[in-house]
Design a binder for these strands. Structure first.
Lengths: 203, 203, 203, 203
DNA sequence: GATGAATGAGGATTCATTCAT
DNA sequence: TATGAATGAATCCTCATTCAT
């Protein structure tokens, strides 16, 4: 197809296209090893254009993280909140599903990027904490509180550290990132954790 | 004689000194941002000498990981194995202590390095898996088996995924690496997990 | 109609407007450090339009120099020539005034630009020499000749190098460009020089 | 001559060699148009080595200016001060010679560089002012004072602006830099100026 | 063995210039 | 004409690696 012009104007889409390409590249190679040239090539764009939308490589990195986080986290959390199931049904159903999807989601990759580069981008870490971690933990606490009020959970459930629910998700993420081939039934891991937690807090 | 060196160092220690310096540097700045010059300076050695012992920066990185892993893991695990307590006493005592020390140990830093750079060093990841993960998991399995045989644990304990014990350790590691300042009682997290697990498996 | 342009500008003015904007920019930052984008923004015009009138940045530079030179030099010299004063009155009056205005005039900035970039634009230097320097020197020579013929100056005045009159102007220009803050009474400098010159050549 | 090793260690000489090469390059092309690569090539050195001695291009520029100034100005001024001639003999002899050498000296090139780049390097301009301009002016004032005390100059000579002596030097410098080919007898220009000045101030 | 001066490939960034709209 | 998105060559600077001493 020799008709493809090498010069196209698509102002609207470029920033997202470039950020998406950058996400792929960072995911594959990490921040430091990714060359802007690579990103541009992936996005089908010249190196210079990247700089039109993102002043520096660091800017691009930040955009990528925020982008992925805001775009995905809302949809993930959104799924969870719209429910009228009993607490246990909800946990064993939508919540478990949500948790099981995390290790394969782009969030996992963002986590890796943050672990690798977080030191040099404390504002990004803060952003991630505020928009993902804090919100997630709050959601869990609210959910437990509601369960207690409904009489589904024992009052002592309020003492539960929400991170106990997150821990197997975290381990599964890291496991997959590092040992993709070494089998671990991450789904069952989370189920077991939920079993244990429910045994503890059910009324 | 002003030509006398300030201090006499045995040549045999040089490789280790360099690797230790490199570990510090990598821990502080990450792999990419660490310059060989930094490492040499930290080790009190010239840049050229570094290359005498480690052909490339990558070699040095690998040596660092292996070094830290073998040197520390043995001592950490060693502490745990020499015991004649009951299974529960052991878990609540030495094992818990071991787990609680992990997030602050060099292993946590190695984990970060592996997460950040693992993609490009699959052999390192394998090495880490074999020498840390696999050994750790096996140790847990052996321990449970012994508990079952002793009648301290229910036979169903054999089905337990050892990663359930590791999960809160993992989460605590990552939490500290990223959110050092955002308080989380990681000690209590691990205790709670152990409480839950014991409730599940105790005879 | 919101589509109506805020102000209507005649197309014929565009080249001059752009050149004026470029003059300002070059004056402020120098040739190399001036971006075409800056010039366009100053002119209230798009970058592309600049290229419609000036094929390259160099073209623009040349236009700027020629522009400023022709537009200003004529007005400056014009002020001087229309007179019927005696030679001494003329020198101490209009000519001195003209000289004293030079260091603050755009000519001074063109001089700086030529000094900085002249090497790469010999044609521009020639242009400047022909249109400013040669004309100026000739005017001085003519003036002296007239004074001699009128008996106001001694015949030996013909031997005078016109540059003696220009020298303090030159020094004042450079002084202001470089040492704006280090005070020098440039007006008095030129007066003194004229005193000395007149003492030499007066009949 | 295939024996010339491409790898030579001459730590002592490098900085000066590089600065000298840079001086040449800046003199020829100006600051902005000079590539570090050019400088390195001229110095017979790799690009990287330049950065070992000069952290940035700007540093190199500053070193060049300071270098040239300090190295040359002292020798030039030194020639002048060691004398026991009468004031007039001194002016017409060593001082005139000194002035006549200026336009062809490296100082002239530094002047051009400062005029071109001074805006962006105010500290350099200050340095130049303090080390060249101020010292030069002070020397002239001292010299006149001495002449007055000796009865060789009239007391009114103290009112003379030293810049009157410098003006033809300045003009000659600029003239040569720009109009090398357009003849001007700069030597005679300075002689004439000295004639005029002496006529004014001689007792 | 040690040193650190020297090399040079590699990558971020800028900006004059082009061209689809 | 007029715009400004898009291009890509050019250039600064870094740093792993080499090698004369």
């Amino acid at each position: 197809m020799p008709d493809q012009p090498k010069y196209q104007r698509r102002k609207e889409d470029r920033p997202r296209e470039i950020a998406d390409a950058a996400f792929e590249a960072f995911a594959e190679k990490g921040y430091a090893a990714t060359r802007i040239d690579d990103v541009a090539k992936r996005a089908g764009v010249s190196k210079g254009l990247t700089y039109l939308y993102y002043k520096t490589k660091e800017d691009l990195f930040k955009a990528v993280v925020r982008n992925v986080v805001v775009r995905r986290i809302d949809s993930l959390i959104g799924d969870v909140e719209s429910t009228e199931l009993s607490s246990e049904e909800f946990i064993r159903g939508p919540l478990l599903g949500f948790m099981q999807r995390m290790p394969g989601s782009p969030i996992a990759i963002v986590v890796r990027l943050l672990i690798a580069e977080g030191r040099r981008h404390p504002d990004l870490v803060d952003y991630y904490y505020d928009n993902v971690v804090a919100r997630g933990l709050a959601a869990i606490r609210d959910f437990i509180e509601r369960g207690v009020e409904r009489g589904e959970f024992r009052p002592a459930a309020r003492e539960l550290q929400p991170q106990l629910l997150v821990a197997p998700v975290m381990l599964s993420m890291i496991w997959r990132l590092l040992f993709a081939d070494k089998s671990l039934d991450t789904d069952r891991l989370m189920e077991s954790q939920i079993d244990m937690l429910l045994a503890q807090i059910k009324a």
